[in-house]
Simulated assay, not measured.
Amino acid sequence: MLVKQKNEYFLIFIISTVMGILGQTLIPYLSTQLNLGLRFLVSNIDIYPFIIVLLISFKSPKPKKAFWRILIYFVGLCLGYYGYTSVVAVYNAFVSGNVNYLSNILFDLKDSLEYIFIALLASTWGFIILKYKARRCLYNLMMLPFILINIYIFYTNLVCNPPQVSMIIVDILCLIGIIICLFNEEISKLEF
């Protein structure tokens, strides 16, 4: 059981790290080349309310497990996303001989720590949500902020000039995903 749990955490970490790297490399490149409007898919908040709800509800974890899932996911994401930009900064400093590029590493570290702190808050929230899952009304009330955040993000993409159509579609899909996770008991029975 413990080995299976460690494998799950490791898998979450690897997926999130790769996602962070792709968010700095392939996703922006393809989005620009194909004019998809998804350049900031990983760097914007749009998809993360859904990911947090999925990590809370997938396979009906215990509160402690959900806490670690969320925290490990965001640590891996930061490592991939900011690790990549830090490696690029070191490379640029080495190639150009300009050590000013290394200051980017400090900015990356600062941003990583800020996002990991937010992830710690989200992890704690996920822990508390699952602690009170038996009280369905309270559980749904505590999940409501994820829906509201997603609706707000949808609204900001809708009213910006020009509207971010691709991200609006992503927001709608994430909102549907959150609702499915909340009300579909089959999600809790899925296996890796």
Rank of each mutant, 00 (worst) to 15 (best):
V3W: 14
V3P: 00
Q5T: 13
K6W: 15
N7V: 09
F10I: 11
F10C: 07
I12S: 03
F13N: 01
I14Q: 07
I14C: 11
I14E: 04
I14T: 12
I15D: 04
V18S: 01
M19S: 14
I21C: 09
I21N: 08
L22S: 02
G23S: 08
T25E: 08
L30D: 07
L34K: 07
N35P: 00
N35Q: 14
L36T: 04
L36N: 09
R39V: 10
V42D: 02
S43C: 06
S43P: 02
N44T: 12
N44S: 13
D46P: 01
I47H: 07
L54S: 03
L55R: 04
L55I: 02
I56N: 11
S57M: 15
K59P: 01
S60R: 11
S60P: 00
P61Q: 07
K62L: 13
P63M: 06
K65T: 11
K65W: 03
K65I: 09
I70W: 03
L71Y: 02
Y73S: 01
V75Y: 05
G80W: 01
G80T: 03
Y82F: 14
Y84S: 00
T85L: 11
S86A: 14
V88I: 13
V88A: 12
V88P: 00
A89V: 11
V90Q: 00
V90K: 03
V90F: 13
Y91A: 13
Y91N: 02
A93C: 10
F94L: 15
V95W: 06
V95H: 10
S96Y: 09
G97Y: 10
N98Q: 06
N98S: 10
N100D: 13
N100G: 15
Y101G: 07
Y101V: 01
L102S: 05
L102P: 03
S103A: 05
S103N: 14
N104K: 05
F107W: 15
D108H: 12
L109R: 02
S112C: 12
S112D: 03
S112M: 15
L113V: 15
L113F: 14
I116C: 04
F117G: 06
A119P: 08
L121P: 01
W125Q: 04
F127E: 03
L130C: 05
L130Y: 06
K131S: 13
K131V: 02
A134E: 15
R135P: 00
R136I: 03
R136T: 09
C137M: 11
N140D: 12
M142D: 10
M143D: 02
I147D: 02
I149E: 04
I149Y: 09
N150M: 12
N150I: 12
I151Q: 02
I151W: 04
Y152W: 10
F154S: 01
F154E: 02
V159C: 07
V159D: 05
C160N: 07
P163D: 06
S166P: 12
M167E: 13
V170S: 08
I172D: 08
G177Q: 06
G177A: 03
I180K: 05
C181V: 03
C181R: 03
C181M: 11
F183N: 08
E185V: 12
E186Q: 13
I187R: 06
S188H: 07
S188G: 15
E191S: 13
E191L: 06
E191A: 07
F192Y: 12
F192V: 14
